[in-house]
Amino acid sequence: MFNLYWADESGFPAGDRGAVYGDGLFETIRMHGNRGVLLSRHLDRMVRDAGRLGIPVALRDLSKAYSAAVSRYVSRYTGKAGDDWILKLTLTRGEGGRGYQPGAGIRPNLIVSASPMPTLPTPAGVAVDFSRVPLTVNPLLTGIKSLNRLEQVMAAREIDGELFEVIMADNDGNLVEGTRTNLLLKVPNGWVTPPTKSLAVAGILRQWLLEWLRAKGELVIERAMGIGDVMAPDCQGLYLLNSVLGIVPVRQLAGQDLPADDGVATIFNPLELLE
């Protein structure tokens, strides 16, 4: 079991290892009224990845905390902006230990917060650029939505003006993901996306969409993706994936126009994926 804290109350311990060392992980869930989009995938991922970090948490306890959060926050957003809002669950190892080494028997902390739904990007597509900040993915942490997001924070500082996102590459120049999005490229014979093992965050929408495309008989290839792939003449579209924002077409990349089919974005209908 964990200690439960509400972000809109005081009393969170200053020595929490999540705050001090980034020792934890989080989930951001798009809500509609009292139901969450792809909810079970979010909760399952938190339990699974917490296990990878050695933070004990049971799905039944996490589900109870989720239900309590819905009861606490839903009335603040019902009837406003289409009833859409955001629920965030942050799980840390807790408080204790000397320096980096955790103490024995630490009890995890779960911090729960809610916020309004952000403005969705235009269906016509967004402007994106390449980040100057390299993204290094530790193989032990691949795909985990951990609290260690400093590289993304530094890259996000480059987003200004009309830019919606910047795309980060690894030290070999392979495009990996945006600061808050996964990548999907449309090519003549199917779809290309960076392999899961290369990702800092393996997104919930990415997982769902790849399964959906394959179930429809579409060819989906997971391989390294370079600048030449997205700038190639046969590129049929580049899409940013985020479980809150949806499937976002890129209409311009580093000043170059890309084909942007807003019809692809309709594949993801959050109202059909509520749990």
Rank of each mutant, 00 (worst) to 15 (best):
F164Y: 12
A169C: 05
G18Q: 07
G217Q: 09
R30V: 13
R30Q: 14
I247Q: 05
G190V: 02
V133Y: 08
N3K: 08
I227E: 14
T181C: 10
A200L: 15
D234V: 10
K80Y: 12
W191L: 01
L150P: 01
V264I: 15
T28M: 05
N138F: 13
S115F: 08
A69Q: 04
L183Y: 01
G15V: 04
D16L: 03
D23K: 05
Y100L: 11
V230E: 09
Q236T: 11
S67T: 14
G24C: 05
N138R: 06
R107L: 15
P188I: 14
V244I: 13
I227C: 02
R93P: 09
D170N: 15
G24P: 07
G97E: 08
R214T: 13
M168I: 01
N189Q: 14
D83A: 08
V153Q: 01
G246C: 01
A68S: 14
I29P: 03
N182W: 12
R48T: 15
R93L: 13
E218D: 13
A169D: 09
E95H: 10
L175P: 02
L163Q: 09
R30P: 05
P121N: 12
M231N: 11
A224M: 12
A260F: 00
R149Y: 11
T92E: 01
S115P: 00
L62R: 05
P249H: 08
I144C: 04
W191M: 07
R41V: 07
A202G: 15
G226K: 04
N189H: 13
I227Y: 13
E222A: 07
V187Q: 05
A169F: 08
R45C: 04
K197S: 15
R206L: 12
I111S: 11
